[in-house]
Write a protein that binds this DNA or RNA. Structure first.
Lengths: 251, 251
DNA sequence: TAGCTTTGTGTCAATTTTACACTATCCAAA
DNA sequence: TTTGGATAGTGTAAAATTGACACAAAGCTA
């Protein structure tokens, strides 16, 4: 095991990486942006992995996570929160992962601690191109993910749990929706994050009482049923609310 | 007290450390176990720091945190939870910290990410000895701490916040109390963690409704006022409760 | 125009929360 | 032994919140 060749100005730190759980919402269910590692690894284990990389010695952890996100999607200024550090000595050294690591890391045998983040992306802001720089990324519904490379499945579960807890305390879900959205979409979003059904009327009552939605005088168009009113998230009212202090949605 | 002399095959990783926020409760207020770095550093900055150390390459993060705790206090099987990773490139390279680092680290200039933990210790289980192996540790009331070495003050605040959130969801506070305790002590504990007054009767009602306390047929002795009944935490009932699922204390 | 689909809405009972004050019990000091 | 000081322990009523529940309205399509 070797470490840290001294830094000139900015080298990759071989011992610390960040991994990003990039959440999206397709207006039906929660999804995650995963990297397809391709055939090479498929003989051994799961093809899909979380996007992530080693950090540079001159950037802090949040910067590294933003960089990973930016390099993959081109997105900046995205809601981002740390999930925690994962550091089992053998977390990346399963037989099925070794080969792939050799192809992408200078020191594939190094012991790497990873710091996991989750980010919330309006899904329409990023459409994966087939093979953007050899990175084949795809939005995968969370409910369909059964396994991932390395310890990434464990990380994903921790991220889901963190999101679940957080959304009970702060209305961060808006970061997953387009600017204009319907209450039904918001409703489905909460159901898919909390992973349980919520009564429609009670949900609407509770959300409306927060008074952080601006009702637009505009309806959905082209839907084969009664069109829904559209709403916007009201940032200012939300700020007021957090000042005066509120803690709990209680879903 | 020293432990755990090096395992062969196991080097210190110069890039990753753990730091522990060791909480205690003196039956009046929340306290933290801090290391006094002594005169050397005092000319430059805060003398006090969180206990912590680099990790070994063959241990995982939880193990490292337990080891740090054990080395300092000799305690094992302590409630312990990760707070998160802190990794500003210059987090340990303030002028006031450099000198001290030189005296304790092989590579004092290395860039170190730290993973912070908080632990809950029944304060009576550990009485600091004046100078246990040059480590001068002391329980300091949280409310009195205004500054710490490195970025440890920031870490402390994150730990307090995490504890605050967590205690609203799980009754982990019992880990800070002696086996037998009074409801008033529990009450004060919650007040000092949540940092706000709680109505006595409402608090008692809410706690009692959880039905995780065993009322002992025993009273406080030697107090200059009406003695309180003593209680024990009932682990089994708590387990039942978590099975059937409960989420929120709602303090 | 009939039928399909989803939106949007109100009430009542049960539960939970909040605010609030006085007596009981022990110790210590006179 | 009495008294004063300190904290323990207890109940209620009003207000707010939650949970359960069903049907008419609006647009699209065939």
């Amino acid at each position: 095991m070797q470490h840290n060749p001294k830094k000139i100005n900015s080298e990759l730190n071989p011992n610390v990486s960040v991994d990003c759980v990039i959440f999206g919402f397709d207006l039906e269910q929660l999804t995650v942006l995963l990297i397809d590692r391709g055939e090479i690894s498929s003989a051994f284990g799961p093809r899909m992995a979380l996007p992530g990389n080693l950090i540079y010695d001159n950037e802090n952890l949040d910067m590294a996570a933003n960089r990973v996100l930016d390099e993959l999607t081109g997105l900046k200024n995205i809601y981002l929160e740390q999930v925690g550090a994962f550091g089992d000595p053998d977390r990346i050294h399963k037989e099925s992962d070794r080969e792939w690591l050799k192809s992408i890391r200078a020191e594939p045998e190094a012991r790497v601690i990873t710091v996991a983040y989750f980010t919330l992306v309006p899904m329409s802001d990023y459409k994966p191109q087939a093979s953007s720089f050899a990175k084949n990324a795809d939005w995968i519904p969370v409910s369909e993910i059964k396994e991932l490379a390395f310890d990434h499945f464990e990380i994903l579960q921790a991220a889901k749990e963190k999101l679940k807890q957080k959304i009970k305390i702060q209305p961060i879900g808006f970061n997953l929706l387009p600017e204009k959205f319907t209450l039904s979409q918001l409703h489905r979003l909460y159901e898919s994050i909390l992973d349980k059904p919520l009564d429609k009327r009670n949900f609407r009552r509770k959300i409306q009482k927060l008074d952080i939605l601006t009702s637009l005088r505009e309806k959905q168009r082209g839907v084969p049923h009664k069109p829904s009113l559209l709403y916007e998230f009201n940032e200012e009212k939300y700020q007021e609310l957090t000042q005066t202090g509120f803690d709990n949605f209680g879903f």
